[in-house]
Structure formats: structure tokens, C-alpha cells
């Protein structure tokens, strides 16, 4: 084989990623850097919770009810134990419950967004590429769903699902039901954006070139169109993550989310607000601040990503 037909390896994807316009926009945006750092910190703390947390709040045997209501940084009146952020009514260390709570919240958030993405992208690709009755059907379903607040839909799905699940499994299934409920209430925006982008892309000549050689429609959708419609999807997904975390917190706050034995940030806030007026402010404050920081950081990241990917604003 001659030298001419040798094909060098493509430049490493890491170099291309660092050199890309999006990466550059990130490096030059202080808001994006701070938001990214905060998000990353919370995510890391949550993922590493079992190794970092001083206590395991899920293990009832390690709890001492005597430790209950310890204020932050003060020794407990009975046991003398000191907790950074204090303890709740059952004597659970707030800092540890926060880590574990964020873990649940983030897991539900990511999983719900992933579920909504898969559902929405598939529906959007099908509607945009096929058009005709497939398009009409999917988009009318989407229209109907959009006319209800998504939290209402999540509540409805949650309620119906609980009716079908035997009581013995309710506790363990709760988290999955929650994911499906939030995901199902959220797929419409992915579907709409992907449908619009697909309708633009499918008429581009590179898609026609693939059709001329008789490439299978599924291959055209996945290999050609999907990579070119992912930009806006990522933006929605980031903002959607913040919304999903808040939706989970809302549902848990309303008492229809995860059970109190596996508290998420929303559950912690619900527990905390009962003690706000009796002076135990820390039980409410720290989970609320964490939720606020997480949702705000992810949202700001989403805003930045939208601007960075929009060529008109660059």
C-alpha cells in the first residue's frame, strides 16, 4: 500500500472538544464556570455519599433518638455529640441526610430526563420524518398533554400507578413510579423540538443522498438526522433536569413521592417545615438551600448552553 492511501488517525476527540466553540464559550463565561462547579460539587458529593457521609441515615440502628433536634455546631444537651448542620427530629445527621437526599433527587432527575428524552426523541423523529397521520396523532396527543400543568399529570400518573401496584411493593417501586411520572409529563417538549428539527434536516441534501442509495429509514434517522438534532435537545435536557429535580421535590413535599425512609431533598423539606415555627430552623433551611443551589446552577448551565449553541448569539 502506498503512502498516499494511508489515512492518519483523526485528531483526538479531547483536543477537538477543548478547542470547540462551546468549550471556549464555557471558559470565558464566569457564570457558566461557577454554575458548572456548583453542579459538579453537588453531584460528586451525592455520588460519593456512602463514603463521605459521617452517618448512614438509612440505618435505623445507628440512630439515637436522644440526638434529635441538635442545633448546628452545638453539642447535644443529652449526648454531647456535635453535628455540623445539626440533626432532625429522629436524630439523623442533617449533613448526611442532605448527601443521601441529593443522591435520590439527582437520580430521579437524571432518570426522568433520560426517560423523557428517549420517549420524546423517538416520537419527534417518527413524527418529523414520517409526517402524515403519525405526525398528526403524536402532535395532538402532545397538544392535549400540554394543556395540563405537568405536575398535575405527574400526580395523576403517580396516583394511577399506585392503584395498580400491590401494597407490599409500593415502597420499593415508589421511586420508579416517580421517574416514569415525571418523565411522562415532560416528553412533549423534546418531541416538539426534535420534530421541528427533523423536518428541516430530512429535506437537506445529505439525507437525500442517503435516500438515493436506498439506505434504510431507521439508519437515516439514527445515523444521519439524530446527531444533527441533538444540540437543542441537550439544552432542553439541562433545563429539564432542573425542572425534574424541582418536580420530584414538589411531589415528595406533597407526600406522594419517595417514602420518608429514603428521604429526598423534597421529603427533607416537608419534614423540616413542620418544625420551622417551633424554632428548629436548620431542619428546613439546609435542604432548601441545597435544592435552590442545585436547581439554580443546573438552570444557569442550561441557559449558558442555549446561548453557546445558538449561532445567532455568538
Amino acid at each position: 500500500m502506498s503512502d498516499k492511501t494511508q489515512i492518519p488517525a483523526p485528531r483526538s476527540w479531547m483536543f477537538r472538544a477543548w478547542d470547540s466553540d462551546v468549550a471556549y464559550s464555557f471558559r470565558t463565561s464566569p457564570v457558566a464556570i461557577v454554575a458548572g462547579a456548583v453542579s459538579l460539587l453537588i453531584i460528586l458529593l451525592a455520588v460519593l455519599a456512602p463514603w463521605i457521609a459521617p452517618h448512614n441515615p438509612y440505618d435505623p440502628s445507628s440512630l439515637n433518638l436522644m440526638d434529635g433536634f441538635t442545633p448546628p455546631m452545638e453539642p447535644n444537651a443529652f449526648t454531647g455529640n456535635v453535628y455540623w448542620l445539626g440533626t432532625d427530629n429522629q436524630g439523623r445527621d442533617i449533613f448526611s441526610t442532605l448527601l443521601y437526599g441529593a443522591r435520590i433527587s439527582l437520580f430521579v432527575g437524571f432518570a426522568a430526563v433520560l426517560f423523557a428524552m428517549v420517549l420524546g426523541i423517538s416520537a419527534g423523529l417518527a413524527a418529523g420524518y414520517r409526517g402524515g397521520w403519525v405526525d398528526s396523532l403524536l402532535m395532538r396527543v402532545a397538544d392535549v398533554q400540554l394543556s395540563f400543568p405537568s405536575i398535575l399529570i405527574a400526580l395523576l400518573i403517580f396516583g394511577v400507578a399506585r392503584g395498580f401496584i400491590p401494597p407490599a411493593y409500593r415502597e420499593t417501586m415508589a421511586i420508579w413510579v416517580l421517574i416514569v411520572a415525571i418523565g411522562l409529563s415532560d416528553w412533549v417538549q423534546y418531541a416538539r423540538v426534535v420534530r421541528g428539527a427533523t423536518m428541516v434536516e430530512k429535506n437537506k441534501e445529505y439525507v437525500q443522498a442517503a435516500r438515493v442509495i436506498g439506505a434504510h429509514p431507521l439508519k437515516i434517522l439514527v445515523r444521519h438526522i439524530l446527531p444533527n438534532v441533538m444540540g437543542p435537545v441537550l439544552v432542553i435536557a439541562t433545563i429539564g433536569l432542573a425542572l425534574a429535580i424541582i418536580a420530584e421535590a414538589t411531589l415528595s413535599f406533597l407526600g406522594v413521592g419517595v417514602p420518608p425512609t429514603q428521604p429526598s431533598l423534597g421529603t427533607l423539606i416537608r419534614i423540616g417545615q413542620q418544625y420551622l415555627f417551633s424554632g428548629e430552623w436548620w431542619i428546613l433551611l439546609f435542604p432548601s438551600l441545597t435544592l435552590l443551589a442545585l436547581a439554580l446552577a443546573v438552570n444557569l448551565l442550561g441557559d449558558w448552553l442555549r446561548d453557546a449553541l445558538n449561532p445567532r448569539l455568538r
Partner: peptide, 15 residues
Amino acid sequence: FQMIFQDPFASLNPR
């Protein structure tokens, strides 16, 4: 048979 298109900016998948 094959086809060559008008717009070389649209006829090659950018990704």
C-alpha cells in the same frame, strides 16, 4: 445511478 446535489454545504453530513 447516483446523484450530485446543488449545495455542497448541505449535501455532506456535518457530523
